[in-house]
């Protein structure tokens, strides 16, 4: 690796053109790596899901437990993604538009879910809302069930997917500054109008991108949800949990059929992400 540097001092043109074998072996290595660790597993998922034919595949997907898991996953995503979208915009707005004490602390805290292991975050909610937890007695007195029920799964997912939207928006809004918003206000526009007609069009692609990532994670989250769900079949299993349950039951077709849905979601997410990046670069 030292060689190209000495070549650069001799002449930058030479240094910029690595020998063909270097280029092709690096490119080949990158593709081989992706094929081995990304494409092969994806192919294997489909292969295993269809190993016993289409009928078995469809039967596995339409099994009541699988349908319940799919429904729960969608419900969780439908609740958490809009909430975290609103939160992300609010947080990005507060951080980029206002000066207040504790601003950098808030910025750091937004990243907390990224730095804490999901299992730990799940456990925290069990400690807070579980029957032995801080609010446990009060909650059971009110007949509210959070842990081992849908609310717990929603709360855990909310926590895990907190940062996605805010993280996308903050750098963009910092770079844009607030002159356009001030201009709109000076022209007589109300705050809401300014947000919807000036701010939102400027951040829409980044916002969509953040929502997309947030959604992918909300549907795919395993660790935190696994701790708070209790794995009750047909009730508190999301798709990732359902996959694990099937796999542990040696139901390979069931596991991989559900996995194919999540994998399909990932592929769609990737395609949309690429489209959004292309849009953003042209906006």
């Amino acid at each position: 690796m030292l060689k190209p540097i000495s070549a650069m001092s001799a002449g930058s043109l030479q240094a910029l053109n690595d020998p063909a074998w270097v280029r092709w072996s690096l490119i080949g290595f990158a593709f081989a790596f992706i094929a081995l660790f990304l494409c092969a597993p994806l192919g294997l998922v489909l292969y295993q899901a269809l190993a016993k034919g289409w009928d078995a595949y469809l039967n596995a997907l339409t099994h009541p437990d699988a349908l319940a898991a799919l429904r729960l996953t969608l419900v969780v995503a439908l609740i958490t993604v809009p909430l975290n979208t609103v939160f992300g915009i609010a947080a990005a707005w507060a951080i980029t538009r206002f000066e207040f004490p504790g601003k950098s602390l808030l910025e750091t805290l937004i990243d907390l879910p990224f730095s804490v292991s999901p299992v730990i975050s799940g456990l925290i909610f069990v400690l807070m809302f579980g029957s032995q937890g801080w609010f446990g007695e009060w909650l059971s007195a009110q007949h509210i069930k959070i842990i081992f029920a849908t609310p717990g799964i929603v709360i855990a997912t909310l926590f895990i997917t907190f940062p996605f939207v805010a993280r996308e928006l903050i750098p963009l809004m910092q770079e844009m500054g607030n002159e356009e918003e001030e201009a709109a206000l000076s022209l007589g526009a109300s705050g809401w109008r300014t947000f919807f007609q000036v701010t939102l069009p400027n951040i829409k692609w980044a916002l969509l991108y953040g929502v997309l990532l947030c959604n992918a994670r909300a549907m795919g989250e395993f660790g935190a949800v696994s701790v708070v769900s209790g794995h009750i079949r047909g009730l508190t299993n999301t798709l990732p949990l359902h996959i694990e349950v099937c796999y542990n039951d040696y139901d390979a077709v069931g596991a991989f059929a559900s996995a194919s849905i999540l994998a399909g979601l990932a592929v769609v997410t990737l395609i949309l992400k690429t489209l959004l990046e292309w849009k953003q670069s042209r906006a």
Binding site: E180, E182, A183, L185, S186, G188, Q197, P201, N202
Partner: peptide, 20 residues
């Protein structure tokens, strides 16, 4: 009074035109 009700026109140094 809020900026929107003062009857002023403001021209920004970097124009601040709505880019979209």
């Amino acid at each position: 009074h809020h900026v929107s009700s003062r009857g002023i026109g403001f021209v920004f140094q970097h124009y601040a035109l709505f880019r979209h």
